[in-house]
Nucleic acid binder design. Structure first.
Length: 878
RNA sequence: GGCCGAGUGGCGGAAUUGGCAGACGCCCCAGACUUAAAAUCUGGUGUCCCGUAAGGGGCGUGCGGGUUCGAGUCCCGCCUCGGCCA
């Protein structure tokens, strides 16, 4: 009977932990104890259930939590669900069943599977982003964003109440002033293109659009502007970038984020349109470009003399006014065609450049030359000013475009030594593009100025004349925060209506005490055929609330899935708080997250968005730390047995339920950790699972007599004192396992415990004093098995809070150590020398070894290298 | 095209600062136990060469160079694969 049988012991201990709330974390860390907040990226509860990729990171954090609990830390280790999202809504559209029903079913499956793996979560803290009480505080945070403006001077978000409205703005009237304020909020409205699919009668998410066609049905998708909510993440670009410095994150992830933010410095330059009435000379560079002025952003103001044409994006507000009657038809067709292309399609370097001439010209502010203004879709309205000066000699895309349309190419940077002579000639002749630094040519009085120097010189020159200024730009764009979907958080916003039921443009926020704004009842979830969100179908009693006595229409956009995951780590600490998102006392005590593990797919967006919200909450005094996640680790991908990505279509998906059924949860956990380093991608191998399962069986038989009818310790287990050798093995194991857990090197920790078991299996007497520490060391990895063994060894309490075994250096010491002896760098022998022997003694011992003596006999020793305790290398000649 | 990461036995991987390459596991082979098998335990297992044997030697960490007494590890150049971005 007492064979190792995970199928009986695992559910038993899971029930025990549940019933005893073994892993409940205290409200605040224990007095005098250090705290650990270990967080997993919570899963989206898909209909497929848990994937073997999930338990990889989850097991890693669980091991750290369990080990550190035993080391006396107060540990909080929560789990929840990121439960809004498209699949549940699609299911609802098909079946008419409310997405919440499907979502809850999926959560139940995920929870069951997670519990089956024995993670030491404090389940009392479970939250789902779809919980109405959670949504309430998500909406509350949105209102904070709405109530915040960014003070550039202080680089800080501040309450709208502290925003001074300039007198000239006030003078323009209340409506104007309100608009002025609204334009400065971190949450603001704007018109942004959506993927409108006329055939499906709905707006699609980016991931539902493939090559300009709908994923379902392959219908054409059009980019159409729609009123949307945006979050002003660009205000925090510098802080988001600078804040990375101090974080203990993989360098690669930091680089990705910096790259995504894409900070560049350059200049904004105003080009007057030919024939335009120039405005009267105003002091300095205008905040907004004057009428008849086309403003561009460039990172290379030094190439201004080489600008031979300009390009504006097809969405640029000047398109109409610049288009001459002769060009009108061509421009119209071009602009429409561009609306079907994604930004990606448009900017792809390899693609052939397209464009159309507007018929208008502008004047180069430095050379006075008249240059044509084109419309081309390789310029994006969302980057910079949506217009560029094109310098074909020194920009690859401009070069291709100029070639395509026979526009002059004028070299203004001499590469000098930076390019071989023939290439340099080609560049200067305008036959080859060169985008590096060099020396100015063909640049009026600036000839001979090195690129770097020229950049600042010309910027100053432009600034003096009020036609340019230094500017910082980011690839990062403001965050498009609304979705035309049902299954998301409603905005706590309503639009005031006039007597005719038309929006006045005035916004009302839902008062805090009226939160949450819950989703309305819908008869069905089918698209209504208009680009407006599905909530437009909501019943009137939901759609038209009265706020402060004014009839309003609720905002019908919903928030994106990212919203809920932006702050869940805070709510975990105080999940039931009815008065605030989190109690400040609790927040101060537990934050920041000490260890955050999850997939690399969230390296940019989730982590950037969450950091942004956190910074706003920090500025507004809701949280006390500038950054939310101190240490981040990305787990690698688990591939199928064939080495390819796991997917249903490849038929190589491994189901955790089946693994647990066949080998047990402890074996699954152990295998996932034994496969290789946590951050690496590695292929699954079911024989490897069998291997670690066998190891767990060996641990069992090390202590339990598996031929007996009852649970009995085997005869070899004794209360006798361990031998010196046994102690040495034990303490080497304690040292290695403890250090390996600290550096998340779980595969090597397991290997060391295997060595321990291999050694003690051969021992005729196995002292408890050695076995008990092993059980404790292994417990974080295979907790069910170890609880069972701990009980068998005569303990009544869970081992979850037993003190971690202490490593004692003195047991590792031996009388002698083996020294490698090399001759000419090749290993030729080994000698035993006394521990701690110095260089001379070690060298003497090496030379005295008969084999070595023979090999060096008659030869001259040129050099002797001695590393005490390690090796001797004799370099000989002759 | 850019950035990041990785190339070590038949396979997953180990080697924390340059110091015995291949820990540990899988696969495979052999032995013990057994009437037999399974299970379990024990041992072997990079590769080539010399030797009947005990044993000895060469070669080996993607490729080519370099630094060093000594390189999987550091430097230069290249190749391949993976990820992200364009």
């Amino acid at each position: 009977m007492p064979r190792y049988n995970p199928a009986t012991i695992e559910p038993k201990w899971q029930a025990h932990w549940d019933a005893n709330k073994t892993f409940a974390a205290p409200r605040l860390p224990k007095e005098g104890a250090k705290k650990l907040y270990a967080l997993d990226m919570f899963p989206y509860p898909s209909g497929d259930g848990l994937h073997v990729g999930h338990p990889e990171g989850y097991t890693a954090t669980d091991i750290v939590c369990r080990a550190w609990r035993m080391q006396g830390y107060s540990v909080v280790h929560p789990m929840g669900f990121d439960a809004f999202g498209l699949p549940a809504e699609e299911h609802a559209i098909k079946t008419g069943e409310h997405p919440r029903v499907q979502t809850e079913k999926n959560i139940d499956t995920f929870r069951r599977q997670l519990k089956m793996l024995g993670f030491s979560y404090d389940w009392d803290r479970e939250i789902a982003t779809t919980d109405v009480e959670y949504v309430r505080w998500t909406q509350w945070i949105f209102l904070k964003l709405y109530d915040t403006w960014f003070d550039k001077e202080q680089q800080k978000g501040r309450p709208i109440a502290e925003l001074d409205i300039p007198e000239d703005v006030q003078a323009m009237g209340e409506d104007f002033a309100r608009k002025w304020v609204d334009e400065r909020r971190l949450a603001f409205q704007s018109s942004a293109p959506v993927n409108w699919c006329p055939a499906l009668g709905t707006v699609l998410a980016n991931e539902e659009v493939i090559d300009g066609k709908s994923e379902r049905g392959g219908h054409p998708v059009e980019r159409r502007p729609l009123r949307q909510w945006m979050l002003r993440i660009t205000s925090y670009a510098d802080r988001l970038s600078a804040g990375l410095e101090k974080l203990d994150w993989p360098e690669g992830v930091k680089a990705l984020q910096r790259n995504w933010i894409g900070r560049s410095t350059g200049a904004e330059v105003d080009f007057c349109l030919a024939g335009a009435q120039l405005p009267a000379e105003v002091g300095g560079f205008a905040e907004k470009p004057a009428e008849g002025v086309l403003r561009v952003y460039t990172t290379r103001p030094d190439t201004l003399f080489g600008a031979t044409y300009m390009v504006i994006a097809p969405e640029h507000p000047y398109v109409e006014r610049l288009t001459t009657p002769e060009q009108a038809d061509a421009v119209k067709a071009y602009v429409e065609a561009a609306s079907f292309k994604s930004d990606m399609d448009r900017t792809e370097l390899a693609k052939e450049k397209t464009g159309v001439f507007t018929g208008s010209y502008a004047i180069n502010p430095v050379s006075g030359e008249t240059i044509p203004v084109w419309i081309a879709d390789y310029v994006l309205i969302s980057y910079g000013t949506g217009a560029i000066m094109a310098v074909p000699a020194h920009d690859e895309r401009d070069y291709e475009f100029a070639k395509q349309f026979n526009i002059p190419i004028k070299a203004v940077v001499d590469p000098g030594n930076a390019a071989p002579d023939d290439e340099r000639e080609a560049v200067l002749a305008g036959e080859q593009v060169y985008s590096g630094a060099g020396v100015a040519v063909n640049s009026g009085g600036f000839d001979g100025t090195p690129t770097i120097e020229f950049k600042s010189k010309i910027t100053a020159w432009l600034a003096e004349r009020g036609v340019g200024q230094e500017a910082v730009n980011y690839k990062l764009r403001d965050w498009l925060f609304s979705r035309q979907r049902f299954w998301g958080e409603p905005f706590p916003i309503a639009h005031e209506l006039d007597d005719d039921g038309k929006p006045t443009g005035q916004i009302r926020t839902v008062p805090e005490e009226d939160l949450p704004v819950d989703l309305p009842h819908l008869e069905d979830f089918k698209p209504h055929g208009r680009p407006e969100p599905p909530l437009d179908k909501a019943p009137d009693e939901w759609l038209y609330p009265t706020i402060d006595g004014v009839r309003c229409k609720r905002e019908t956009n919903t928030m994106p899935q990212w919203a809920g995951s932006c702050w869940y780590y805070l709510r975990f600490l105080d999940p039931k708080n009815a008065d605030a998102p989190i109690d400040p006392e609790i927040e101060k005590a537990w934050m920041p997250v000490d260890l955050y593990i999850g997939g690399a797919e969230h390296a940019v967006l989730h982590l950037l968005y969450a950091r942004f919200w956190h910074m706003v909450l920090f500025d507004r005094g809701v949280v006390s730390t500038p950054e939310p996640f101190n240490k981040l680790v990305n787990q690698g991908m688990i591939l199928g047995e064939n080495g390819e990505k796991m997917s249903k279509s490849r038929g190589n998906v491994v189901n955790p339920d089946e693994v647990v059924e066949g080998y047990g949860a402890d074996a699954l956990r152990l295998y996932e950790m034994f496969m290789g380093p946590l951050p690496d991608s590695k292929p699954w191998n079911m024989e490897g699972v069998a291997g670690v399962r066998n190891f767990l069986g060996r641990v069992w038989r090390l202590m339990i007599d598996d031929r007996a009818e009852e649970m009995l310790l085997c005869d070899e287990v004794t209360d006798a004192e361990p031998t010196a050798e046994q102690l040495r093995v034990l303490h080497a194991t304690i040292k290695a396992v403890t250090e390996d857990i600290d550096r998340l090197s779980f595969n090597t920790a397991i290997a060391r415990m295997m060595e321990f078991v291999n050694f003690f299996t051969k021992e005729k007497t196995r002292p408890r004093a050695c076995l008990e520490p092993l059980v404790l060391l292994l417990a974080p990895f295979a907790p069910h098995l170890c609880e069972e063994l701990w009980a068998a060894l005569g303990h009544n309490e869970t081992l979850s809070y037993e003190p971690w075994p202490v490593f004692d250096e003195s047991h590792l010491q031996t009388d002698t150590v083996d020294i490698v002896v090399q001759i000419g760098g090749k290993v030729r022998g080994k000698v035993a020398v006394a521990t701690g022997a110095d260089k001379d003694a070690t060298l003497a011992a090496a030379k005295a070894d008969p084999k070595i003596a023979e090999l060096i006999a008659g030869k001259t020793i040129v050099k002797e290298i001695v590393v005490p305790g390690k090796l001797v290398n004799l370099v000989v000649k002759g």
